[in-house]
Design a protein around this nucleic acid. Structure first.
Lengths: 182, 182, 182, 182
DNA sequence: ACCTGCGGGACTACCCGTTGCT
DNA sequence: AGCAACGGGTAGTCCCGCAGGT
């Protein structure tokens, strides 16, 4: 249920995703939804965002820690994103972005769930960079750049239906990391 | 009319913005909308995206070409974005992003309008970098990084209601540009 | 539209009457309803109550002023009520009572509409009694008794599906009026 | 449980009172309701009506038989009603009326429960009047008038949020009774 | 020709009263 | 006795045409 909701919200945003779509796709009856999510669509979306964030966190962690060094770790992350996006026909970009932008301004719980998701990814990157020798401060700043550039590149790639922005960004991020390493 | 529509779409996305809101905010009667925009809401949104793109293009151009050098040009652009976002209480981020993500997948005209908007900004940056001595190829690639990082930072700042991501990214982009200059 | 709504509300009360029923019975599409009654079901009910009150006021006035004297006027009114109720199979009692009791406590506009309806009937009776020689004060008090007894009798008759309470009350009201006449 | 249900139904009618409200107010779990009341909401309402009728019957009996004579007995009854209604902020009128009108036409068990409730009150009044010397026939007829006028006055008072109709009616009923006494 | 009041349903999120399975 | 599930139903709003008027 939450899984399918997460996919729908990621692809269409909050308001474009109707309850009907959520329940048919999720295979649940209408009334059960409000039993498990008394807060309705809003709560469902917030929990879906949390789930999405955790899942992607796991995927990124695997990609990072399977890599030989920090530079190829960044490469692996970008490669993963490219694969996810092209495999889905450019429907799946960042699983939080669409909801962040079309519901984050109206619903505080949703905004917080999204914000926490981004923060979790940023912490992951920061810890990874620290484990490769960067100071806490430089790691945090670099992690923000990495995350922002990846998010933006996903947005551009979605708009263009073309992974080129992700690839162009990958090159720059690789060298940015390389330069910061001790 | 278009102006107010652009603001509404930017802040809420496509599906969260109702016709009622558009006409009350825009001060136009209901039926007239379909005289001026026979394509309905979709056409209105596409044209609003185009308008937003052009307006921001002008603002960025001014900021860039008023700066003494390329590094401070990038600084000026980021500063402008920070100002826009904080001044609007973190409601206005990128004027295209929300619509790109919640309507771009369903409406081809809207996706194209957004895509063209991003492309126009990228061309602006590319030309600016070329005018500061970069080769066409390196300028294009760097422009993509700049645009992606700015878009992503706007997204993160919106989610967090905090301009910190924009500031963190600004530092890295400044040095990225500095390194590429001849 | 309002006529059919008035009938439905009278027979079933406010909450038991769904919008679906109102629009199918009234022959209007759903969207049109909210054009003419922006306040939705609540406004529709309030206006229906007003209409019902005016219509019944007209019916009662005719019955009263067609009668030879005050006593037979009261008789005519009760007779009219009996006829209305038996003709409808005890579905139509007082057109305001059901809504007064199941929405009047939750919706101030509806309560006011109902209250004004009762007041209009009371004024009608008061003026009629004054025109037959009662002082203003005694007329008002007697009108209240007449109205209350009629309302109560309609309620009892509805519950019992039997006009006997109306007939029993009629006798007492007739003599109550006879005694007060100069 | 039944007590709280009775209060809710009296104040809001049958359809305006949701199961959720009944179980939260009544402090019972959702599923248990259908153990104790296999007939569901309908049975619950019918039994609540019966309970309300019996309780009010008791209250009225006490008021009547504590009075010195028939006239002051009627006075005591009206006084009790006024007190109940004003004490509850005009939310509690007749405990059966709202349900009678918004469910009596659709549910035969409920209609019968209400009808029996009214009949029990009428019997009480009849017996009281007989015990003060009236013939059975005149007592029955007068009891109907008393009950109808009280019900109607409660309705008017509820609509107006003003006990004036009850007071006006009290005067007339007092003299009606006085005249009938031997 | 330009505009708009009104009408038309499909669809929204939400909640209802009810019932199997535990 | 009771939790979890069930869909049909709620009021309300959506985006969109179509005649009529200026």
């Amino acid at each position: 249920m939450l899984e399918s909701a997460a996919g729908l919200f990621a692809a269409q945003g909050y308001h474009a995703t109707g309850l009907n779509q959520l329940i048919t796709e999720g295979g649940a009856p209408r009334g059960s939804l409000y039993f498990h999510f008394p807060g309705g669509k809003e709560q469902l979306a917030a929990e879906a965002m949390q789930l999405s964030a955790e899942q992607l966190c796991g995927v990124l962690r695997e990609a990072l820690y399977a890599a030989a060094d920090a530079v190829s770790g960044v490469d692996a992350v970008l490669g993963t994103l490219i694969e996810i996006q092209t495999a889905s026909g450019f429907r799946h970009g960042c699983p939080l972005a669409a909801v962040t932008l079309d519901a984050g301004s109206a619903s505080e719980p949703i905004r917080q769930a999204c914000s926490e998701g981004y923060a979790s990814w940023e912490r992951l990157l920061t810890e990874y960079l620290v484990s490769h020798g960067l100071t806490e401060e430089r790691a945090e700043s670099l992690a923000t750049l990495l995350l922002a550039a990846m998010e933006g590149a996903l947005l551009l790639a979605t708009a263009r239906r073309d992974p080129a922005p992700l690839q162009a960004v990958a090159g720059h991020l690789r060298s940015a990391v390389a330069r910061e390493l001790p």
